[in-house]
Design a protein around this nucleic acid. Structure first.
Lengths: 163, 163
DNA sequence: TAGACGTAGA
DNA sequence: TCTACGTCTA
């Protein structure tokens, strides 16, 4: 469709460095970091298996993701977790959640982008945080007993530190 | 907030020419053509009166706008006209609708951007169509008897033709 | 056709 | 907090 510079891929994107900053989710798509405009988990199909390519962890949506010295715990998608109007449901191990699980099993790296709220609370800035490995995932009961998936990702050593 | 190149203004935007094309609604904001990411009518407050700065007429939302040789009829905003979930209501002469009415009274020009669906139906392209004058507006009863505002805008002569 | 970690402004 | 002519993928 649109003029996208790069093909969807797993791993680093040529020309994109750790710490690179973007203003809009759509910019992430144009440069090849993350092709989903509203979803947090992007993935591709290789053969018959879906593998994650990138995740965007955005502040301000109540996902309760955690970040500590290269270790992040990322909440899965689905179940209307952040919807204000729809009923919360169990998350399922499909689509992006399944892709992250597959990336763990096949030991494939995942690009991580952090969407930080601006100081003036006007919009976000998206920063490329580098490559992570999915080390573990599990189910949690939250939000009135509904199932939520959690994914533990660890930053691959040897990458430039974030300033 | 974000790095926007230009101040909000009425009339032409320096450096932007008729026929210039953009890929995303957010690009319109960055170059100073239209600052609303989802709304069709943008406006500014001069003293105590709101005046329209620009409108975006996008295909594919069922607004039934018309375009004929420099004359367009643009549908007002509000009333959940294009919502799939919410009930239709009467549109009111407030916000963008009021701004367009004020622009008519004060004979202020309005920038027009056309959002055209792409050939492959993947996204839109936004084309700057030039300056128009609001010549007339009226109410119509549509959608189960609900009030909708219609604005007749005429393209100011002497501008480059659209190719 | 609907879902999804979107954006800005009132 | 809510509305609003968003935007992509499945």
């Amino acid at each position: 469709g649109k003029q996208v510079n790069t093909e969807k891929r797993i791993g680093s994107v040529p020309g994109i460095n750790v710490g690179d900053e973007f203003q809009y989710k759509t910019e992430l798509r144009v440069v090849g970091l993350h092709s989903k405009t509203m979803c947090g988990i992007d993935y591709m199909k290789i053969g018959e298996v879906r593998l994650a390519t990138s995740i965007v962890a955005s502040e301000g949506y109540g996902y309760n993701d955690t970040f500590n010295s290269g270790v992040m715990v990322y909440t899965g998608e689905g179940g209307n977790v952040i919807s204000k109007e729809k009923k919360t449901e169990d998350q399922k191990l499909v689509k992006g959640n399944l892709a992250l699980a597959n990336s763990m099993r096949q030991k494939k790296e995942v690009r991580v982008i952090r969407g930080e709220e601006r100081w003036d609370h006007k919009g976000k800035r998206y920063v490329y945080d580098g490559l992570y490995m999915v080390e573990q995932y599990w189910e949690e009961k939250e939000l009135r007993g509904k199932t939520v998936y959690k994914f533990k990702l660890c930053r691959i050593p040897g990458q430039p530190p974030l300033t």
